[in-house]
Computed example of a mutant assay.
Amino acid sequence: MATFEKEIIFNLENSIEYTNGGVISKQVTKSLGGNLTLFSFDKEQGLSEHKTPFDAIVQILDGEAEITIGGKPHHLKKGDCIIMPANIPHALKAVERFKMLLTMVRQE
């Protein structure tokens, strides 16, 4: 998966499109310290419950999402952010179409 070109100005929200009935992901950058990935979700689409060994920060760029962390639902809209702790089950669902930037931070 290719990453974005360095030293080029870009707009995160405009860097990923929506697809009807689906989910799209685009890797922005990846390193040993972590990675940044853009996602777009059509309404009612999502990611089933899972967990990762890394803290994950979600920044909503457009739309609305419900993010469940450890069984507790959180409603987020454009401009909102939340940290999903490492090793805690979490899931995402599009209340309305939404775009997000996911930042995965590797633990030391």
Rank of each mutant, 00 (worst) to 15 (best):
residue 24 I to P: 12
residue 24 I to M: 14
residue 25 S to P: 15
residue 25 S to A: 13
residue 27 Q to I: 02
residue 27 Q to M: 11
residue 28 V to H: 04
residue 28 V to E: 05
residue 28 V to Q: 05
residue 29 T to K: 11
residue 29 T to V: 13
residue 29 T to R: 11
residue 30 K to Y: 08
residue 30 K to P: 03
residue 30 K to W: 07
residue 31 S to Q: 10
residue 31 S to E: 14
residue 31 S to K: 09
residue 32 L to M: 15
residue 32 L to P: 01
residue 32 L to I: 15
residue 32 L to G: 07
residue 33 G to W: 01
residue 33 G to V: 01
residue 33 G to M: 05
residue 34 G to I: 00
residue 34 G to Y: 00
residue 35 N to M: 05
residue 35 N to W: 03
residue 35 N to Y: 06
residue 35 N to R: 08
residue 35 N to C: 09
residue 36 L to C: 11
residue 36 L to D: 13
residue 36 L to H: 11
residue 37 T to M: 14
residue 37 T to S: 15
residue 37 T to L: 07
residue 38 L to A: 04
residue 38 L to H: 08
residue 39 F to L: 15
residue 39 F to K: 11
residue 40 S to L: 04
residue 40 S to K: 08
residue 42 D to P: 00
residue 42 D to E: 03
residue 42 D to I: 01
residue 42 D to Y: 00
residue 43 K to C: 04
residue 43 K to Q: 04
residue 44 E to H: 10
residue 44 E to D: 15
residue 45 Q to I: 06
residue 45 Q to C: 14
residue 46 G to P: 00
residue 46 G to R: 04
residue 48 S to Y: 12
residue 49 E to D: 05
residue 49 E to T: 06
residue 49 E to N: 05
residue 49 E to Y: 06
residue 50 H to F: 06
residue 50 H to A: 06
residue 50 H to M: 11
residue 51 K to R: 09
residue 52 T to L: 13
residue 52 T to S: 12
residue 54 F to T: 03
residue 54 F to G: 04
residue 55 D to P: 03
residue 55 D to N: 13
residue 55 D to L: 10
residue 56 A to D: 07
residue 57 I to S: 02
residue 57 I to A: 02
residue 57 I to M: 03
residue 57 I to W: 00
residue 57 I to N: 02
residue 58 V to G: 09
residue 58 V to P: 01
residue 59 Q to V: 07
residue 59 Q to D: 10
residue 59 Q to Y: 09
residue 59 Q to H: 12
residue 60 I to A: 05
residue 60 I to S: 04
residue 61 L to Y: 04
residue 61 L to S: 03
residue 62 D to A: 10
residue 62 D to S: 07
residue 63 G to W: 01
residue 63 G to Y: 01
residue 64 E to N: 14
residue 64 E to I: 09
residue 65 A to M: 11
residue 65 A to C: 11
residue 65 A to S: 13
residue 66 E to I: 14
residue 66 E to K: 15
residue 67 I to W: 07
residue 67 I to S: 06
residue 68 T to W: 13
